[in-house]
Design a protein around this nucleic acid. Structure first.
Ligand SMILES: [Zn+2]
Ligand SMILES: [Zn+2]
Ligand SMILES: [Zn+2]
Ligand SMILES: [Zn+2]
Lengths: 156, 156
DNA sequence: AGCGATACGTTATAATATAACGCCTCGATA
DNA sequence: TATCGAGGCGTTATATTATAACGTATCGCT
């Protein structure tokens, strides 16, 4: 990893805590789930990190507040994913706060293999979903686009 | 997993062994790699499976022919990925033969969460790549689209 | 023959993720 | 308010996935 500071996201794209909590309430109601201290702590961690967070990195640092065992952390992060407040990034085995909070289901993540920065970008949802529908009888639940490469800063 | 037979791919999309070996030769030359028995065996396994293959499933079955340890199998599969002859599917921790052999770098995979079937679909490459370029200075190396949901057969 | 790069076999270990089970808490309902 | 079922958490153990390390073999070239 290059050792430079990651750019904070433009404020317009960062979900405010208020927005996040409103979404949490709404979706908890819809899904019969509860908004708990663990989940709020997990969300705070993701928002503070402003980038991908790996479960076992959390465990080996001092960050936790109640999140002290793998199962606990996985449960909290997965709950956030279910609630639409986080992504799981399979190609990194990591979780990240979701910025485009309810606008589109599909997400496009640009993962820099040099520095580890991940940008969340509004996806070309219509074109992508149209293409999927055109090709099959597949009923799409989730679409994840993980693009790997090298970010502008690393190439500068 | 539902217990039905998976559909063979239309023959037009299945790479013939001849095509695959031609590609292997060409790309080995380009990359200074070698086409080995292990890699050919790995490719045969993927083509026979006609779907995603998990490393430790291979180990616990009797399939191997020389591929008997994790490191060996991972090396062979990763070599196939480098050569453009296979995909790694991060959301499944699995490998699969690549059908669209050199047409497009980006791939769109439709993963049925019910039966495990994975269809490889020609992606809307231009739209997707254009969107990526429009959004950043990111230099894209690979784009993987993994759509999860439910295939037509499972819903029938 | 000599040499560097690539690849393989093997052993051990690291990294990632889940199972299982008991206890707790919330909220609906009687 | 007593009861009850679902959701959630803490903890321990274990399963699953992936890589490190190192010595040997092989290839292509000179
Ligand atoms: Zn960086
Ligand atoms: Zn970068
Ligand atoms: Zn099936
Ligand atoms: Zn299916």
């Amino acid at each position: 990893m290059k050792n430079h500071m990651h750019h904070p996201l433009p404020n317009a794209l960062r979900p405010s805590l208020a927005e996040a909590l409103a979404l949490a309430d709404r979706r908890c109601a819809e899904l019969g789930r509860r908004w708990t201290v663990s989940r709020q702590r997990a969300l705070e961690i993701l928002l503070e990190a402003n980038g991908p967070v790996k479960v076992y990195d959390l465990l080996s640092s001092f960050k936790p507040g109640g999140l002290t065992a793998p199962a606990t952390i996985y449960r909290a992060f997965e709950a956030l994913v279910d609630l639409g407040m986080a992504h799981r990034i399979d190609s990194l085995n990591a979780y990240m706060a979701r910025h485009f909070i309810d606008k589109a289901q599909a997400t496009l993540l640009l993962v820099c293999d040099q520095c580890g920065r991940v940008d969340e970008v509004a996806p070309p949802t219509p074109a992508l979903l149209t293409a999927i529908k055109a090709h099959s009888t597949f009923l799409t639940e989730t679409v994840a686009v993980e693009a790997h490469g090298c970010c502008g800063d690393c190439r500068a």
